[in-house]
């Protein structure tokens, strides 16, 4: 879930200078500054559109920094009580029906999560944008009736899934409304749309995010943030394997 936060949590955006595009790198730094909160808790619904049926999951997630996260499935009933723990680049999954803790190996993380348009790795990618990408503002465009900066991101570190990204950042509310992920060759691979932007505390938040694999047919995967809280008390023992079985 980290990546979602990384994408849309933007606060305290630099005031704009009229007639001149702001510095892209600056934008990224601010995104990073603002996305890293001590910890957070949120409840979300993930809607996966299959060819035959759509499936909705309800999850609650705790995160701390950019390396730890803990997710519990609330719905559907079959999945209830399933928990996922992520520490750095390791992932454990606990299933109450089997009463087992399974470790997901590195190469498995590239597989898609539950038939969705996201891989485990997509979900776990959490490094700071400014530490991976150079950025340049290349123009302005209206998205969903809002004026946005178009920010082109190019990776300067080699070990990265997407070499290029393109963000449409709301000029007033300082939150990307659309994100496109490109292959090195320039082919568009994935598109993310963020909508239902709400204000939570000092931050602007999307209520809904739609992920779409652009190479394949289908309606994509929807993520709805039902509730989110920042900087709350999260006991450290939550991020341990012992808590998986509780």
């Amino acid at each position: 879930m980290k990546k979602l936060l990384l994408v849309f949590i933007i606060t305290g955006f630099t005031p704009l200078l009229f007639g001149q595009y702001p510095d892209g790198k600056d934008i990224l730094r601010k995104i990073d500054d603002n996305m890293i909160s001590e910890n957070r808790y949120y409840e979300s619904s993930m809607i996966i559109h299959g060819r035959r049926t759509s499936l909705t999951f309800k999850l609650k997630t705790w995160t701390a920094g950019d390396t730890k996260s803990f997710t519990e499935y609330l719905f559907p009933v079959r999945e209830k009580g399933t928990k996922m723990l992520k520490l750095d680049d390791q992932l454990w999954i606990y299933s109450p029906s089997a009463d087992r803790i399974i470790q997901i190996a590195g190469h498995m993380l590239r597989q898609s999560v539950m038939g969705s348009d996201l891989s485990y790795e997509d979900l776990m990618e959490d490094s700071k944008l400014s530490e991976q990408y150079n950025a340049k503002v290349s123009g302005e465009e209206v998205v969903d009736g809002r004026k946005c900066w178009i920010v082109d991101l190019t990776a300067f570190v080699p070990e990265i899934a997407y070499h290029r990204k393109k963000l449409w950042v709301d000029q007033e509310r300082n939150i990307p409304l659309q994100e496109e992920l490109f292959a090195k060759s320039g082919t568009l691979l994935k598109r993310t749309r963020l909508s239902e932007i709400r204000r939570i505390n000092e931050r602007w938040y999307p209520g809904k995010i739609l992920f779409k694999d652009m190479l394949k047919d289908g309606q994509g995967t929807e993520l709805v943030i039902d509730e989110i809280r920042f900087n709350i008390e999260v006991p450290d023992h939550i991020f341990s394997k012992a808590s998986l079985k509780k």
Binding site: R110, A155, P158, E159, I160, A161, Y162, H163, L181, A183, K184, S185, T187, L189, L215
Partner: peptide
């Protein structure tokens, strides 16, 4: 046909 792969660094590429 479009081919998507990941290079040695894990970066997505498509041609």
């Amino acid at each position: 046909v479009t081919l998507r792969w990941r290079d040695r660094n894990g970066t997505f590429d498509a041609r």
